[in-house]
């Protein structure tokens, strides 16, 4: 169920650079508050797109634990 959160899983099919670039481009010219709002919308869209509430909860927990150093 949460296999997609496995550290070895790469679901971006070799297009990590494209996705990362698009993310930064989406934020260009926004204020800090506007950027935070964009991020919030994006996260909510992605949680819904998962179509898997268990995984959504697991992803939130992984992100919370993901802070390193």
């Amino acid at each position: 169920m949460t296999a997609r959160l496995d550290p070895e899983h790469d679901g971006l099919a070799g297009r990590a650079d494209d996705v990362y670039e698009a993310l930064l481009v989406a934020h260009e010219g926004l204020s800090e508050a506007e950027s935070a709002a964009l991020n919030a919308r994006l996260i909510l869209l992605l949680l819904n797109a998962l179509s898997d509430p268990e995984m959504a909860l697991a992803a939130i927990a992984t992100a919370r634990d993901g802070k390193v150093g």
Binding site: P7, E8, H9, D10, G11, L12, G14, A16, D17, V19, Y20, G66
Partner: peptide
């Protein structure tokens, strides 16, 4: 930890 994120490190 996550492979997908390593692939974003540039």
């Amino acid at each position: 930890r996550h492979v997908f994120a390593r692939r974003m490190v540039n």
